[in-house]
Design a protein around this nucleic acid. Structure first.
Length: 267
DNA sequence: GCCCAGGTGATTA
DNA sequence: TAATCACCTGGG
């Protein structure tokens, strides 16, 4: 299906650190995994994409890529005097905040702590291969992101072999609690930002950084700003150590612009 | 071979 | 409330 879409750059998103299973398999061709689904997209030009899916499936991806939101409004938040953010926004054209699966995000970001993006991807892929359902299609054989039940079917040593190290126990404990019904991830949509963060923080292995990532990337809380080493460097060097008031409403989005720029360019 | 990675929980004062 | 430290392991 050919689609015309403004402000969507898959390469930028794939490298933005918000998702770990989006791969550019050849130039301008992407395999995009979400829970138990796999999507192939060819980028024909800046605004034209070939989605290999049905119209019904596209509805899912329309939400996944947040296509109903007009991203022009986020770039307008930039203060005239803020040359640095302006540069970051120009550099990050086509960056969007995805609407990703809640369970997948919690597990993925628990794994992410003290790991490079590459190492996170390796770890997640190993886990998917060991416990996720097989996805067979004309593009090859792939593996779905496992459910909590499927993860728990693995022995602890199998999980360790995915390279999760000390995070293994966190994952096992969360999967058990989740199956026992301790967390209703969908119902948490209704919580305020603060309540949501506090609920996520009760998960062992989830601190403020991981909770913020889950709130932004799974619950789409655009005002929540995950602060990692990169962002805290930006804040220190450019903003006297704190987020300017004007940016608070969309701090999560602004953070993505800063992050995307500073990971590639020196500041 | 060495250092550090998009942190967190436990312990200490 | 804040500072310090150990922690698994894969990449660069």
């Amino acid at each position: 299906m050919i689609k015309n879409i403004k402000n969507l750059n898959l390469r930028t998103i794939a490298n933005s650190g918000q998702c770990f299973r989006m791969y550019e398999v050849e130039e301008n061709v992407f395999n995009i995994f979400s829970v138990d689904k796999m999507l192939r997209v060819k980028v024909l030009n800046n605004n034209t994409f070939d989605f290999d899916c049905s119209e019904k499936e596209f509805k899912y991806y329309s939400h996944y890529f947040d296509l109903s939101d007009n991203y022009d409004k986020y770039s307008k938040v930039c203060k005239k005097s803020d040359k640095f953010l302006k540069k970051c926004i120009e550099f990050s054209n086509g960056l969007r905040i995805l609407n990703q699966d809640k369970f997948e995000m919690i597990i993925s970001f628990i794994i992410s702590q003290r790991k490079s993006v590459k190492a996170i991807q390796t770890s997640i892929e190993r886990m998917c291969k060991l416990s996720g359902k097989k996805i067979k299609n004309k593009y090859g054989e792939f593996y779905a992101f496992p459910s909590a039940k499927e993860i728990l079917k693995l022995s602890k040593s199998k999980l360790l072999s995915c390279g999760m190290g000390y995070r293994t126990d966190y994952i096992i404990e969360f999967c058990k609690d989740y199956i026992a019904g301790k967390y209703d991830l969908e119902a948490m949509d209704k919580l305020t930002d603060e309540e949501l963060l506090n609920t996520l923080l009760t998960i062992k292995g989830v601190g403020i950084k991981v909770a913020s990532c889950v709130a932004l990337f799974a619950y789409h809380r655009m005002s929540i700003c995950p602060i990692d080493v990169w962002i805290s460097r930006v804040l220190d060097k450019k903003y006297n150590g704190k987020i300017p008031k004007e940016y608070e409403k969309y701090a999560g989005m602004i953070q993505q612009y800063w992050f995307n720029y500073t990971r590639i360019n020196k500041i």
